[in-house]
């Protein structure tokens, strides 16, 4: 079972953000609601939380890349 980390709605007129930093590395354990990455828009930065507890199994976007709202950023293998 997996959980997807995606770019949430970020407010009116914001359609994309820069993935500024991964706060967790590939294979690291993450807890639900723990910050896993930082997104930066033209307005501000936001720390995005893990949607579930588990292991960060895939990092699909590199730091510095621009990503649209809704984009898949990473995948968490859920804790058993």
């Amino acid at each position: 079972m997996t959980a997807e980390i995606t770019v949430p709605q970020l407010g009116n007129e914001i359609e994309e953000a820069e993935l500024t930093e991964w706060l967790k590395g590939l294979g690291e354990t993450v807890e639900a609601e723990e910050p896993v990455l930082v997104l930066t828009t033209t307005k501000a930065s936001i720390e995005l939380e893990a949607p579930a507890s588990g292991t960060l199994a895939k990092i699909l976007v590199r730091e510095g890349d621009l990503v649209p709202v809704g984009a898949l950023l990473g995948i968490i293998n859920l804790a058993k």
């Binding site: 949430p8 709605q9 970020l10 407010g11 009116n12 914001i14 307005k43 501000a44 936001i46």
Partner: peptide, 8 residues
């Protein structure tokens, strides 16, 4: 501006 992330 500071509420823009929360509003959605």
């Amino acid at each position: 501006m500071s509420w823009s992330f929360a509003a959605p």
